[in-house]
Design a binder for these strands. Structure first.
Lengths: 199, 199
DNA sequence: CGACACATGTAACACGTTACATGATTTG
DNA sequence: CAAATCATGTAACGTGTTACATGTGTCG
């Protein structure tokens, strides 16, 4: 849903054509989340279908320009006004993976944690380096500022991830001797979960 | 891709039927990321199509049981062995929204930050409370442990988000007087971005 | 009996990615 | 001229959500 709203927000600023929308989007997010051009066009189709934007003839250069409508503006205002909430937080693949790894046999959790920590550290370093380079230009262009803040969010997120991994490793060390994964071996007798899938 | 791998990982542990797979998944992640039952069945279809799992007759109770195959097991091992990397980090709606808000006119960024901070604090409190309750039972069941660690990841993430919001607010205060959003008003003359969509 | 959980699906739709097709313009 | 970039699309596919249909079993 973020792409749809993002494009609409950009159109709120000024009428644009598809290719330009992608450029504007990527300029602000520094290509962290590359935007497929095909999706831009299909999204524009849907926006027009839903009455949030309309084709605005050409701009004298043959471009297919879209313009936001009144209801489109309302939608944008609403989007910016509504905070991102925790109901349905996006799935965290790492958390899911680790959660499953801990509850299943045949998985070397410590190895997993170690490998992930290395990878996450490398990620953090990449972000930090990019951040340093982005800050070097030090222009006050608001787009550069936005790009830097996006990088900061990635840095903060990566740091939190690493802290969490350390936390998990501690947990594991503390509990390794008290649990052989499951109170009853699922191979020996049907687990509780097997018999009663409800919680 | 995480659902597919998750279900396969569960099947690696033991043969199961669809409804049961959902229960097992949600038990481990504490319903943080509710899993639609319809998706379970379609995913199982695809797993079978791709030769990673097969229907295993019934279990004497008329359930449609699936069993993992050899290539399925290989796939699971690979999944657990491969760390989650930063190439293509998942889109962060909040970061995108704030990034756009800062570069567009007609958006009250400070208001947005304030509203989001309130919401994020509330999220954090919710997670912390759930975490406290989950830890209360204090069983050594590995599934409870997994659920607690998932909650911890949410807590760590929410804390990072709040720190980032504060960071952004500071940035904004520091730069508010030096930039009127854009070096050249896009209403007055064509912006750089408009003329040159490339970077 | 009626409500609810269990259990298996299908259909429609939104979103996202990759790849392909097509042509104009720019640039080394 | 060749390659890259600009520019607009379409098609196929995977993933994910919501809603619907259908039937069984259990429990108050």
């Amino acid at each position: 849903m973020s792409i749809r709203h993002s494009l609409l927000a950009l159109l709120h600023d000024q009428p644009m054509y598809g290719y330009q929308l992608r450029s504007e989007f990527e300029e602000r997010t520094g290509s962290t989340w590359p935007l497929n051009i095909g999706q831009v066009y299909t999204t524009l189709d849907r926006l027009e279908r839903d009455g949030l934007a309309i084709k605005d003839g050409d701009d004298g250069e043959g471009h297919v320009v879209y313009r936001i409508t009144a209801s489109g503006k309302a939608e944008v205002s609403q989007w910016f006004a509504a905070p991102v909430v925790a109901t349905n937080p996006p799935r965290n693949e790492l958390a899911i993976k680790l959660s499953l790894a801990m509850t299943l046999d045949n998985v070397d959790v410590e190895m997993l944690l170690q490998a992930q920590r290395t990878a996450s550290m490398r990620n953090l370093q990449t972000y930090t380096r990019q951040r340093r380079e982005a800050a070097k230009s030090d222009s006050n262009d608001s787009q550069d500022v936005a790009w830097i803040l996006v990088l900061d969010s990635l840095v903060f997120g990566a740091e939190a991830e690493i802290r969490w991994l350390d936390h998990c490793e501690g947990w594991l060390r503390k509990h390794r001797f008290r649990t052989s994964k499951s109170p009853a071996s699922h191979a020996a007798e049907p687990t509780n979960a097997t018999k009663e899938p409800t919680r």
